[in-house]
Design a protein around this nucleic acid. Structure first.
Lengths: 210, 210, 210, 210
DNA sequence: TATGAATGAGACTTCATTCAT
DNA sequence: GATGAATGAAGTCTCATTCAT
């Protein structure tokens, strides 16, 4: 995972010193907040720098261009999401699928709440990729999907690997979208949608006897 | 529905003459193509006008600003999607839910193929709404969801109306996202994902005995 | 000649109306003055626009970028220089070479005085070409050289065409450089240098019996 | 001459130690290469430092600013060119002028080949002088011209000193320009142009009976 | 003395929208 | 109504130079 999520590719300079690392985080935090508030395109690099209380020049010392901020944020999200998943996944290796779904959806829900910019950043990255070559696509984190597919294969060895990949993809995509949707509503709506997401996922996975 | 989707709100002038209606369609077609190809933000109004073979001034006679083109496109999609749905929905009023899902997913898949800009336009509208006041939200078409909820209620009268609304929302959102995802892959991937979508939806709806 | 010096390649839009043509000239005049005063690199497009009393946007309506101003100026110089040359050349078809040189050098001297930016523009274009591909080189006007070579061939038919080309190149280059050098000094220096240039050229051409 | 070309004026610190002298040369070599390759303006001080494998800070310890690099390079060229000239000049004190021209042009040609940056540096210095006060002008090396003028006076004592100065100036300027021009072409062009330069110079100087 | 991260003014260029014709 | 030239605010990014360490 380390390689996939390494920020080296999108960082102009690897911050070695504590002060620099702080600055990078400040910049990313500022970018995240502004991307959420006014959207990626409407956010100016100068606004990010101002918000982060650094000169624009410093921003460009760490990030080659505006898009790099987006990528770096995505990397940061992926890293955190992956760590969350890995830990919980280990704990739930042998529980019934309904429990697995219940706990996992709750965890992802919490992640979505903690990282309100995830959706905005991801959706903008997809937009950017529409323009650029699709080669950038492999920047996206496939780790969770792979682990989930292996999990399914262990649970039901009769499932073909390709089948497991597909199910994992569908499950992740669906849960992600529904949780993001849940964030657009009030507390009640969110809770209901989470409950519904669990029903949906459990029914789906039970179909495959996992 | 006609009222909801009426373009009056986003059209500066209701084109009465055939020539004008033609121009509006040309402009929307050009906008659609460019939004798909290079994205909303990267598309200039002048490029749209050029592609549509109309002067920029004419574009602004029909659309107050660039965002209006996005809204108009969304309306056009909603109208077409709704007609597709209504017709098929009537035909499938009494078939088993698995058949309903099968036919409906195929239809939506075909719609997604026929309207490759749907995803781009919708996702961009969401971005724009982040910035603008949420009042724009009611521009979105809730019709299909409402009809689907009623359908569920008819199929299983023990379900509460709120419950039906929620299920309908979940079902629509999920199918939409998975079909859009399917468009990003090759033919094989698309077919597999469509099949998987049917499995997922059928399992889900059968949970509720509809 | 018209084709070679046509400005179509460097003008974004061919100004059709009198007002636009005026603007283009204003912009070029402003660019010329500033290029002379502070040099090409130190001149900002905004300064050119301000000096020409047009908004920057208008500048970019006619010229795709800063370099296009340089090219357009060069074209303008070439055109004027060529006309000057052609007219005088016709008049001097049969005079002794010393007279030809005398009159021609005087004419070029007057041109250099009238177009103080010629040197700056040309030298900057050469710098720009160092960076860009050398394909741009054919933008330079070879017309005068060709005509001069033919002239030499007529005067002394024993000279090979290639030889004539070379002599013409040397003569033009030398006269140009010396006249430019003359502009860097005071009136006396200029007059002395012009006289010297005539001595040099006459001696050179008489070597070939033309 | 040593004083005139002394680098003290443009060097911030006279490098006393071997290590420092090495660094200065590395920096100048790097600057020369980059000035040739991408031009003075397009070359960043950081790029020069990187290429020279020294930190930017060190560069600024030896050179007060970017322009100082240009001046220092010019000084280095002048010094080398002067040494070349002085030695050959002594050897050719009494040969016929045609031989003098022949040998001297060949030597200058070799110098131009060995120092491809000469032209770029000189032409850029002229540009810079346009901007700065003309006081910088005396930085240019007049030595060769002076010696040449004296040489002419010795050869033909009837020539006034001012006349000699002028002839020397014309001769040097002309040879320089033609040799630089020769570098822009292929081998054949270069050889032809050199031959032509000799014809031109010999004819010119013979006019004055030197 | 040596280093290289930090700075921020300012450069070029774009483009949604208007309005005189 | 139709046209498209005109506008200028604003955006992204660069880079010579400094100075704290």
């Amino acid at each position: 995972m380390a390689e996939t999520l390494d920020q080296a590719t999108s960082l102009r300079r690897q911050p070695k010193q504590a002060r620099s690392q702080e600055r990078v985080q400040q910049i990313l935090d500022a970018a995240e907040q502004l991307f959420i508030e006014v959207g990626y395109e409407q956010t100016t690099t100068r606004a990010i720098a101002t918000q982060a209380q650094v000169p624009v020049g410093s921003l460009y010392q760490f990030f080659p261009d505006k898009a790099a901020l987006l990528k770096a944020l995505a990397h940061r999200y992926f890293e955190q999401e992956y760590q969350l998943f890995v830990q919980l996944h280990a704990e739930l290796a042998t529980v019934p699928i309904a429990v697995y779904v219940d706990r996992m959806v709750d965890a992802f829900d919490q992640f979505a709440i903690d990282h309100p910019g995830y959706q905005a950043v991801l959706s903008q990255m997809i937009d950017l990729m529409t323009v650029a070559d699709a080669a950038t696509y492999n920047e996206f984190d496939p780790q969770i999907g792979l682990e989930l597919a292996q999990f399914l294969a262990r649970r039901n060895p009769t499932l073909a690997p390709a089948q497991c990949d597909l199910i994992a993809t569908v499950a992740l995509k669906t849960v992600n979208e529904l949780l993001w949707l849940s964030l657009t509503g009030d507390r009640t709506f969110r809770q209901q949608l989470i409950a519904e997401t669990k029903v949906l996922m459990t029914a789906y996975l039970q179909t495959y006897g996992v």
